[in-house]
């Protein structure tokens, strides 16, 4: 008898835990691609100040976030580094509305050495042993970097030097630690103190790669959650957000 009542208590406890939404109701979970890591903090802070809705940030590569969303991750909005993944979510019926471009990302060549100004020709030098870029298979900034190398007809001569970060953040980590002497990364990340103080960057000609159109999409199918998500969705297109994005090196529609 004791055992059954004990079991009932445990069940009751868990059911209580399960349906206690009040603490979560004013929160929004944003899945954010890693190139947005720094700008999104400022945007989310402004959003919270304006609407009172707190944001939880989950930063990872767009591909991983999309895979997680497809397996039911409890995210409300995806800010991807490209349009491919948001489009895929929409086509699979996991998003209530078609994705929209909120900013265009820019690619830079970054050297972690404060005394060198990075140039494309430097990649061919023997002193450059490793060139870091994000995984072109999953990270849009990685495939843009491959296009730049192809554009300069350098891909075959430097292929053996390439090392692939899981995403833009890991690519930066390879460079900041000095493990790679140079690399391609998102312009939006080179303004951070750890990267700006240590090295130099060169903006790459935007004609040498396909524009990195970054898409935002609401995810999930519960209408109640959508109002909060929609508030954020609208906020990212506001002048205030677009100004912040521009400050972090994105180009926006004006």
């Amino acid at each position: 008898m004791f055992r059954i009542s004990y079991l009932l208590w445990v069940l009751l406890l868990f059911s209580q835990l399960g349906c206690n939404p009040s603490s979560k109701s004013q929160r929004l979970t944003l899945a954010v691609s890693s190139n947005m890591q720094f700008s999104i903090e400022e945007i989310a802070a402004r959003f919270t100040a304006t609407t009172g809705i707190e944001c939880d940030l989950v930063v990872a590569s767009s591909g991983k976030l999309t895979a997680q969303i497809m397996e039911g991750a409890p995210f409300d909005v995806l800010l991807s580094a490209d349009m491919k993944y948001p489009q895929m979510l929409f086509q699979n019926g996991m998003a209530p509305a078609a994705p929209k471009v909120y900013a265009y990302g820019q690619l830079v060549l970054y050297s972690p050495n404060a005394n060198t100004d990075p140039k494309m020709e430097m990649l061919l030098k023997d002193s450059i042993v490793h060139i870091a870029l994000a995984n072109p298979k999953t990270a849009p900034y990685g495939s843009a970097a491959m296009e730049v190398l192809e554009h300069h007809a350098m891909l075959d001569s430097v292929r053996h030097k390439l090392v692939y970060g899981e995403n833009v953040s890991q690519t930066n980590q390879f460079m900041v630690t000095g493990a790679a002497q140079i690399g391609f990364t998102a312009k939006s990340t080179v303004f951070t103190p750890s990267m700006a103080n240590q090295g130099n960057w060169l903006a790459l000609d935007s004609n040498s790669y396909t524009p990195i159109a970054q898409g935002i999409v609401m995810v999930g199918t519960k209408t109640k959650e959508h109002q909060k998500a929609e508030a954020f969705y609208n906020f990212i297109f506001s002048d205030e957000s677009q100004k912040i994005l521009k400050k972090y090196g994105y180009s926006v529609n004006e």
């Binding site: 590569s61 591909g63 991983k64 999309t66 895979a67 497809m70 895929m88 490793h130 870091a132 995984n135 298979k137 999953t138 390439l162 090392v163 692939y164 970060g165 899981e166 390879f174 493990a179 790679a180």
Partner: peptide, 26 residues
Amino acid sequence: VLMIGGNIPGKTKVASIAIYDEVEAL
């Protein structure tokens, strides 16, 4: 391996990394 490998095919891209990669690429 994820932290020091650099995901280079044939050199440092071991199976566990390849799996992670493929899942991410869906």
